[in-house]
Every structure is written in structure tokens, then in C-alpha cells.
Simulated scan of single mutants.
Amino acid sequence: MNVLIVDDEELARSRLQRFVESEQLGTVIAVASNGVQAIEAVETFLPDVVLMDIQMPTMDGLEAARHLTQLDTPPAIIFCTAYDEFAIEAFNVQAVGYLLKPVRKEELKTAFSRLDKINKAQSLALNKETSRSHISAKTHQGLELVAVENIILFKAEQKYISVIHKNGEVLIDEPLKDLEDEFTEKFIRVHRNSLVRKTAIQGLEKCDDGSFSLRLNCYSESVPISRRHVAQVRKLVKGL
């Protein structure tokens, strides 16, 4: 069984690796120090199991796990965390295995004996409490991460959402309403098919037919505003 260890503390990584190898639970094929590195390592090394901390810089373990559920064959995940049981339940991740630090050998062995792949129910439970720092999209190159701070526009197109960002565009399969709820502090609904980053707005334009559209930074096309959203958008623009 191939194992990936993810923790921003070197001592914690070394301790887990020593336990895994001494108890012959598997082979540690890679280590990582944050969620972004974890996703890259999973795609590169295809581990069966990920032992992952929750609190880490750049991207925490909860968000990394949520992105990993999009893979066709996601690895099993065991969180190794300083959070107690009640905090874990508050994160809605009780369906995913977890161990409290400092991790003990017997507990690790028991967790390995109960391993299971992440399922859809677990996927929905992951990271519901906080918004993501990245959006993940399946591309021909694998799982591509786009930092939310670089996203300009979410645009619904038939069954998919176009995520237009500063470096290009990717497609994701998520409801626009869910994205609106998750990122309501950073994005505003301007049309039934569009969410725009508030800080990307340059100005409001009135079209010849009496309708309105938005000019955005780093995006050459005007974005139409539906009649029902004009007042809300106009209020936001005045406050920018």
C-alpha cells in the first residue's frame, strides 16, 4: 500500500513515516507540506492512502481533500490533526477517518484496517464551513488548481461553468448557485448565468437598447447585467 504524508511540520512527517514503515502498514512514496503540494503529489505518485494534517499554509487539509474527491480514483484519507473530536464534528468531516496528534501506533494501525475510499457523501461533507482558496478543474493535464483570487468571472454555459481567470479559462461541473453561496463576499450575481468578481469591476455601461453591462479588469468582453440585478450592481459600483 502506497502512502503520502502531508504535514507542514517536518517532525510530524518523520514520526508518521517511521510508524508506517515500522508497522509495515505500507510504503511512504512521497511527503508534502501543504494542500497544493498534496494534490500535485497524488497526481504524480498515485498513493492509496493520504495521511494529512488539517491546519497548513497555502491550502489546508480540508480543502485539499475536497479537491481530491474530483479525481476518478481518489485515495483514502486519514486526517492527523490536533483538533479534538468536537472540532472535527464541527467541520462535518466525521465520515472521514481522523487521528488526534500525537498519533499513536495502535491508533494508526486501526485506522489503516478501516480504510475506505472517499465517497460522494463524504465529499459533500468536506469543507462546508469555509470557502475554498482554489477551484479545481479536470483537464487533459490532470487536476488544475485556480486560485480564487485570480478568478474574474464564473459563467454558466449549458451543463458546465466557465471559470475565467487571469491566466486563462477552465470548465467545472458545479451549480452556479452553490458557487454564489460559497463566494458571496467576493462575487456578485449580475445575470442568471454570471457571477463577477467585485474587485474586477471597472464600471457600468448603458447599451443602445437600454440594457446595462459591466466592464471588467483583465477581460475584454462586456458582461451583460439582467434587469433584476441592475439596482444591486449599480449600488456596488457606486461604493467601489
Results as ranks from 00 to 15, higher is better:
Ala147Tyr: 11
Lys198Arg: 15
Leu179Pro: 02
Asp60Ile: 08
Val233Asp: 00
Thr58Leu: 06
Gln122Ala: 11
Glu106Gln: 15
Arg192Met: 02
Val146Gln: 01
Gln17Gly: 11
Leu143Met: 10
Leu236Ser: 10
Arg104Lys: 15
Phe212Val: 05
Asn150Ser: 15
Leu62Tyr: 05
Asp181Cys: 06
Glu43Tyr: 05
Leu108Phe: 05
Thr199Ile: 11
Ala95His: 11
Ala231Pro: 06
Cys207Pro: 00
Arg18Met: 14
Ala121Leu: 10
Ile88Gln: 05
Arg114Ser: 14
Thr130Ile: 11
Ile201Thr: 00
Thr44Ile: 15
Ala147Arg: 13
Ile77Trp: 01
Val93Met: 09
Asn167Cys: 06
Ser226Glu: 07
Phe112Gln: 04
Thr130Tyr: 13
Thr44Asp: 15
Arg215Met: 11
Pro75Cys: 03
Thr58Gln: 07
Glu174His: 09
Val233Cys: 02
Val31Leu: 11
Val96Glu: 00
Leu124Val: 05
Ala231Ser: 15
Ile151Leu: 08
Ile118Glu: 03
His229Ala: 08
Gln24Val: 05
Glu23Phe: 07
Leu71Ala: 09
Gln37Asn: 10
Pro57Trp: 06
Glu169Asn: 12
Met52His: 09
Lys101His: 02
Asn34Pro: 10
Leu143Ser: 03
Glu23Arg: 13
Pro75Tyr: 03
Glu106Val: 12
His67Asn: 08
Ala111Trp: 06
Gly203Glu: 02
Glu185Thr: 14
Ala156Cys: 11
Gly35Asp: 04
Asp173Tyr: 15
Glu107Ser: 10
Arg18Thr: 14
Leu25Val: 01
Ser213Thr: 12
His140Lys: 15
Ile77Phe: 03
Asn92Met: 09
Ile225Ala: 03
Val3Lys: 06
Leu204Glu: 02
Gly26Phe: 04
Arg15Glu: 04
Leu176Cys: 10
Lys120Arg: 12
Lys159Val: 12
Val233Ser: 03
Val96Leu: 01
Ile29Asn: 00
Pro102His: 04
Lys238Met: 13
Gln122Glu: 10
Leu179Gly: 02
Ala30Glu: 03
Arg189His: 07
Arg228Trp: 01
Tyr83Ile: 05
Gly203Ser: 04
Val28Cys: 01
Glu23Tyr: 09
Tyr160His: 14
Gly210Thr: 03
Lys235Ser: 14
Ser211Asn: 12
Met56Gly: 05
Ala12Gln: 13
Pro175Thr: 09
Ile161Gln: 10
Lys235His: 13
His165Thr: 04
Phe91Thr: 02
Leu16Ser: 02
Ser226Thr: 09
Gly97Arg: 10
Asp178Met: 12
